[in-house]
Computed example of a mutant assay.
Amino acid sequence: MKSTRARIAIDAMGGDHAPAEVVAGALRAREELDVDILLVGDPQQIQASLPPQANVAALRIVPAEGTIEMHEEPLTGLKRKPQASINVAMNLVRQQQADAVVSAGHSGAAMAAALLRLGRLSGIDRPAIAVVLPTLIAGKAVMILDVGANVDCRPKFLEQFALMGSVYSQYVLGVADPKVGLLNIGEEACKGNDLAIRTHQLLQDNPVIPFIGNAEGRDVLSGQFDVIVCDGFVGNVLLKFAEAVGSVVLQILREELPQGLHGKLGTTLLKPNLRRIKQRIDHAEHGGGLLLGVAGICIISHGSSQAPSIFNAIRLAKEAVDNRVLERIQASDPHTPQGTVSSDARGEE
């Protein structure tokens, strides 16, 4: 019988700080989030990363051999290393031994492994990487997709992104009536390139998508929109710029607030506020991106992720599992019977 606890397979060997930081984040999630953790990778390295007081009996270590390096072409690397940690982790989901995968390794390899081993959801032509960013309105976030899975897109891809994003926003982020926007250079329907103009028409004509119009760059973090869709090229540039701005703001606060005696006293008094500021703008607090559109839950974290970011990535995975994101996306497709999760385009072993 399937466990009621979310079972999360962690690519323990993926990322700049693997496996130590990945294991540390997974251990914290095991204690605080009530999830079952499967650490996938080199057993010896994983064991060496466990603190002496760790409850080893509560963990499951799944052996794997090697990882896909950042310089490797994803498909070539996956085929050349069938027992690489990301392949083994995806197979656990395919075999229903895990409910989700979290990886801070090669993002292209993670996406390719998800497509090869899990396949796409029925009715979805391309998966998208979705991230959640803070807005000017406290407590309100905006989901951006795609932020890197598809450099070139067709209008129907963006239409599918909008559908998946609105489902996630409603059922996971708790937005009762999500407002969807199309990233563009102007508010008018006639603005933008051919992709933007044709996509605008599709979104406007789709009664299932709560589309309210174009979103300019200044609108992204305004709180006016709950979901903003764009191609992966633009989305990736936007994401990295937003992360850089957040880092700059935090660095300026660290440098300027402690200046002088009054500054040090003020910094002490403002610590709770500064902590909340960090939680709102630091990308590590958001864990990573959800790969929407594949027949399995997959969280792609930053390569530089440390324990806090891994913890938050596992939290994202648990939320997606608990809120049955796959089933809800599939149910929103009028061409798929309600309550089913089918997949297509699964690669051969």
Rank of each mutant, 00 (worst) to 15 (best):
V167H: 01
V234K: 02
A57E: 15
G296R: 00
E255P: 06
T268A: 15
A100D: 05
S301M: 10
N55A: 10
R315M: 15
L92T: 06
V237S: 03
A26D: 07
G192A: 03
G119N: 03
H106K: 07
G25S: 04
P334D: 08
A244Y: 11
V40H: 01
D322E: 15
Q95S: 11
L182D: 05
A58C: 09
I124D: 01
Q306F: 11
A84E: 00
E31G: 03
L136I: 10
A18K: 08
F241T: 14
Q338D: 09
H17W: 15
L183R: 06
R218S: 13
F161Q: 01
V208G: 04
I277V: 13
K81N: 01
D125Y: 11
P334Q: 13
V237Q: 05
K264E: 07
A345P: 03
V321Y: 12
S309V: 12
P74L: 10
S342H: 11
I86W: 04
I10L: 12
L75Y: 02
R80Q: 10
G339D: 02
H71I: 14
S309R: 06
A84H: 00
G339V: 07
G174V: 08
S169L: 05
S301L: 08
P308Y: 06
F225A: 08
V321F: 02
L261G: 02
A26L: 10
S301V: 06
A26E: 04
Q45I: 12
S103Q: 05
A6W: 03
I10Q: 09
A24R: 13
K191W: 13
S122A: 15
E255F: 10
L326T: 00
K240Q: 12
A100F: 03
D99Y: 04
L316M: 11
L50R: 09
H200Q: 08
R324F: 12
I228L: 01
V325N: 08
V40F: 02
Q53V: 14
D205V: 09
A307M: 13
G186I: 09
V102D: 00
F241L: 15
L195T: 11
E216A: 12
I86R: 03
D282W: 04
V167D: 01
L195I: 08
N150Y: 06
E327N: 13
H71L: 12
L269T: 04
R276H: 13
L116I: 07
N150C: 03
I197V: 15
A109C: 04
L202C: 00
I212M: 13
L163P: 05
L274G: 04
V40W: 02
K79F: 02
V132C: 10
P19D: 10
N214K: 03
A320E: 00
L326Y: 07
E73A: 09
N193R: 14
